[in-house]
Amino acid sequence: MGDTVRIGKAKRKKVLSEADRTRRSKHIDLIVTLIPVALMAVYYYGIRVLILAACAIIFSVLSDYLCLRLCGDRKWQSYDFSSVISPLILVLILPASIPYWLAVVGVLIATFVAKYPFGGYGKNIFNPAAVAFAVLALGWPDKVLSYPQPFDNLGVSFTVGGSLTNGVAYRLQLGGAPAIPVMDRLLGNFAGPMGATCILVLMACGLYLLVRRTISWQVVTGTLGSAAAMAFLFPRVSVSRVDSVVFELIAGVLVFGAVFMASDPVTSPKTGWGKALYGVLLGVLTMLFRYFGKMEITFVFALLLCNAVAPKCDEYMALLIQAAKRAARRLAKKPLAPKTQGE
């Protein structure tokens, strides 16, 4: 926690500790990178995206504040921007046609169900945006898993008229390859979650966050690498293996989730090897849920399961490494075979 310093007769100013400063800087990095993703969503779907984001953030901040007051002695930490980041992440993995009230319901679920019963920011076990999306997807699949086409005129009314379509993930589930030109696949010019389709922007943001060490390279590469490997080895559709990898990566919220959700330092493992195992597990589970499950968006469900086993990833990898080191030491100390007589 920070110390307080008195600046003359002025109010005491809280000085943040090194750890808190790092946390704040990471939060700011995340917000900075979410902005271009949100702007791409605005480009494709219009001003409605901004209104959704604003509603979500306002209700998130209010509900966070209410929970803090209910908890009594817990103060709002100045490094904590989670009440801005979580709702923004949630909104960007939803379709642009989502009713405003449903986005608000999601935000309230994230705060009241996923965050504060476990102790609030820094103590939650599950990623709040993932919990909220999972509940919305199961409860309102017609509203959450149907998408407008980019550049459709959605307007700003409470509900969106016009036709909605299924995403890439749904078509892959049925065994069909979507007909999307290559550039559109990278730029996100196809129906899908409003912030999760523009792969190029997501990769650029991911690179920035990796360089800034805000997210963990082990988690990101583990997740995307294992998912890509499974898509290559076991394609769901009758296309080339490379196309299978591309479609599986652009489907659902896999890339967005790997960059913005999986590396959440609160809910992911703490050690490097633990993060690597976690990333691989997440990618594998996401693909297994796609192969055998009924939901088209599976990343968030796999993420919830991985959040639960995150502490065990650190523990088991530590044991594995210890065992490997012991084995290596034994091999190094093993004496040479004794010489037989006559040699």
Partner: peptide, 22 residues
């Protein structure tokens, strides 16, 4: 006009009981 079908699932039952228990 609007309902919350998610409440019919068992996970909602767990969560509602959790809040009542709290």
């Amino acid at each position: 006009s609007e309902t919350a079908p998610a409440l019919m699932f068992p996970f909602a039952g767990f969560i509602i009981l959790g809040f009542l228990a709290a």
